Simulated scan of single mutants.
Amino acid sequence: MNVIFKTDIEGFTLREAAAEDVPVLLSLIRELAVYEKLTDQVTATEESMKLSLFGIRPGAEALLGELDGEPVAYAVYFHNYSTFAGRLGLYLEDVYVKPELRGRGMGKAILSFLARLAKERGCARFEWSVLDWNEPSIRFYRSLGAVPLDGWTIFRMTGEALDRLAGI
């Protein structure tokens, strides 16, 4: 489904990404990795993204932001679950707007759309992570009313450690 969501920003629309958008999504993901100084961690391929976003059991959903028909932004999100609330949450994995277009409201439009989507789907929460050094984003998120969670540490397991724990 390729539904278009108009925004209040002249020429800027959001739409659900489709399998044919994977090359442009991957390109934008690589741009985000450059900004976050994490290019060495991008191992996604077009094939892996098609399978995980548009395969038999998609693990996430993606939005593509276009300015006058040109891709300039994206978001990838998925549901998580709160046992305490007994309800789904919406987790934003990535949100990205090309640097030269920041400050024009596109990021806010994406987050606003996702907040409405979370409410429509009955989600108890809308959450995301941000790198500690990314002060511009932290200020932006705080200006929207988001609050950082103190007292939580994110753990990650990959590679050999994941294999060992899985008994592989």
Score class of each variant (00 low, 15 high):
102 R>G: 02
73 A>W: 05
158 T>K: 13
125 R>F: 05
140 F>P: 00
107 G>W: 15
53 L>Y: 06
70 E>Y: 13
7 T>Y: 04
5 F>E: 12
113 F>L: 04
34 V>F: 06
32 L>N: 00
31 E>F: 04
52 S>A: 03
78 F>Y: 10
99 P>E: 00
88 L>M: 11
163 D>M: 11
104 R>G: 01
94 D>A: 09
62 A>H: 02
160 E>S: 15
35 Y>K: 06
84 F>C: 15
86 G>I: 04
23 P>V: 05
118 A>Q: 13
16 E>M: 11
11 G>C: 11
105 G>D: 05
46 E>Y: 02
151 G>I: 00
134 N>V: 11
156 R>I: 01
2 N>D: 08
29 I>N: 04
147 V>F: 06
95 V>A: 05
140 F>H: 00
98 K>Q: 03
71 P>T: 07
43 T>D: 13
101 L>K: 11
79 H>S: 12
151 G>Q: 09
34 V>H: 05
125 R>W: 03
33 A>I: 06
103 G>C: 10
148 P>W: 00
108 K>F: 05
163 D>A: 11
75 A>I: 13
150 D>L: 04
154 I>T: 14
126 F>P: 14
38 L>C: 07
77 Y>I: 05
102 R>D: 03
154 I>Y: 14
64 L>Q: 03
28 L>P: 07
24 V>P: 10
1 M>S: 14
61 E>T: 04
118 A>S: 14
161 A>K: 03
74 Y>H: 08
